[in-house]
Amino acid sequence: MVATNQKSEVVFKDVAKGAYSKKLHTVILKDCSLNVEAGKLTVLIGPSGCGKTTVINLIAGYERPDHGEVLMDGQPVSGPNWERLVVFQETALFPWLTCYENVMFGPTARKSISREEAHRETMMLLNKVGLSEFRDKYPVQLSGGMQRRAELARALINKPKVMLMDEPFRGLDAMTRKLMQEYYLRLFEETGCTNLFVTSELEEAIILADKLLVMTNKPSKVRKAIDVDLPRPRDWSIATSERYREIKAEALELLHAEAIKGSVASGKTEIDLKAGFEKLKTARG
């Protein structure tokens, strides 16, 4: 199938990255070291605006680190490449191409495989994501969930070594989102390629992850890596298990602490946010 035999890993070594504009300079990442393990689904979670997208951009090669190194299989990342493909936050399907043409885009642009082969694989992938009936529709004619599936197919046809998911299910309604998560799980379990999934929603993170990386506020780094040792293949029934709840409580505490730091930094509130946090802490003992 579309699975690649070769499994790659991505390593961040002491990465620092700033954003520089005319008036405002911020340090987004500082001393950030992390490890996206080969053949695993790593989930990056953190408070909003903490630089998760920057991590994705650095791995994809759209940005360069100001300090430190981003390594893929020991080689520094030098620029965008189809070995590392991003599924963007808002859809990045080309609006002037049909669903089918969008999926065909990668192979035909590179001329890596013959047109017939590309066509065959496109049809197979469209079938797999359930869009074969919609192959001649333009992206604007598809629903949010369909757009995401088309985008997944567009990435998978290139047989990437690393898939980078930048909050791909954001903005979908709750039901579609759940379906897409399960869908994505099936796809991952089938292909088994290295995945980095960025999200700000905890349930989603735990249900998907092999490993959960919790990030701090800006300048951010990985605060803690939590191993999610839930059995695979998974589905939403796992949310009732004891282990799930343990992991959730642990991660929640970390996130809550970061979120409060963030809100204290950005403005005062009259509501005592700390109270809930203390309760959570005592409950865990």
Binding site: D14, A16, G18, Y20, H25, V27, K30, D31, D66, H67, G68
Partner: peptide, 15 residues
């Protein structure tokens, strides 16, 4: 070491 470098880097960009 790394930290010192980063601080320097920030300052260069700030002005």
């Amino acid at each position: 070491m790394a930290n010192a470098k980063q601080e320097a880097l920030e300052l260069v960009f700030k002005q």
